[in-house]
Design a protein around this nucleic acid. Sequence first.
DNA 1: TCGTCCCTCAGCCTTTTGGCTGATCCTGCT
DNA 2: AGCAGGATCAGCCAAAAGGCTGAGGGACGA
Lengths: 208, 208
Amino acid sequence: MSAITVLLADDHLVVRSGLKALLGTQPDIDVVAEAASGEEALAKVEEHSPAVVVMDLAMGAGMDGIEAIRRIRECNRRQAVLVFTTYDSDADIVRAVDAGAMGYLLKDAAPEEIFAAIRGAVQGRSVMSAPVASRLFQQLRNPGEVLTPREAELLSLLTEGLSNRELGQRLFISEATVKTHLAHIYAKLGVETRAAAIATAIRREGMR
Amino acid sequence: MSAITVLLADDHLVVRSGLKALLGTQPDIDVVAEAASGEEALAKVEEHSPAVVVMDLAMGAGMDGIEAIRRIRECNRRQAVLVFTTYDSDADIVRAVDAGAMGYLLKDAAPEEIFAAIRGAVQGRSVMSAPVASRLFQQLRNPGEVLTPREAELLSLLTEGLSNRELGQRLFISEATVKTHLAHIYAKLGVETRAAAIATAIRREGMR
DNA sequence: TCGTCCCTCAGCCTTTTGGCTGATCCTGCT
DNA sequence: AGCAGGATCAGCCAAAAGGCTGAGGGACGA
């Protein structure tokens, strides 16, 4: 049987180099190309048509990983895309899966986990790191914890550092209403203070 | 002349592996040990006494990179510590330099830059990535608005959503002292509330 | 040695925030 | 029509945060 061809897409040379070294130990896995940006990844996919694309989500300037996944999936269904990134942010996971990612690995994953994910991907199996899987299940179990549009609006302004009074003025509602919304937001985010809510929001939604 | 001995400290196996592969191409640089945590780094420094320690700041659980740098510098002045991390946050830079780091590299640095930093470090020269250097210079131009190391530490924890009490417990200081630091931080950042401080910090520093 | 800066802490007071309960209005769905 | 859920508001209370003043100890350089 022939080796599994792999494209590495990560803007950090060190990470690509490390992955290549790790994957090089496996006779059935072949790194055939590398890319340092989303654009480059698309071009390399065209050129080499690898079986698996291992992709970082955060790729410096230009197209981000999610968009790259979407484009790859759009024009060619043969590639299985594995996300390989540092953070297990809820929003990223959902967006990546939605864009068509076959698996989601964290950068501190064990080598065996990475190998298994690549082999699984070509067979159509979906593999993800334990923390990622648990977050996904948690989201599926609690569909009720989605912010309403108004709450999301509030949260967005909250991340700008506004006080309750300012929030009320900005949204033309009373401070009491602001507090009600905030209480709901805190409950849904699983936090108790506005500081934690801001931290959570910015980190997990990429709000900025 | 004998090769420069290097210890790699990073919680991501992939990154260690990549660095090792890169540094392996240089005959005058020898990776003699690796560590996946701050604690392990300290032990390996004792054991191998490397000339240079290349250290990530974010190391999952346990001791963080800054603390590890401080400990290494405390008990042994022979090691030059190079920070090798993903983000160029002002607070981290200040804290790392304060803790005794010889250089500050970003993970997307070119290989030559990394080699040069390691070679410079053993000669007592300080090397840092261009974005890092520019941030430092900017800070030097505005001396009044630079956070002290302690303030930067507090701000960093603040962005995790901790309360004053939690901040005090985490830093082993009283709540009163926390409030004093916060007041100074607010003044320097030009904000009036902790919410705004968090928002400013995360947006301006790329903290996460 | 003196001044300066950083880190530490205290007390007092006001404002803000958060928890709780309960209520009205509207919209969309059954 | 009835029901659910979202958005709006009030009042009350406790906890947290913020503004202010003052103060001691340690490090470091002039």
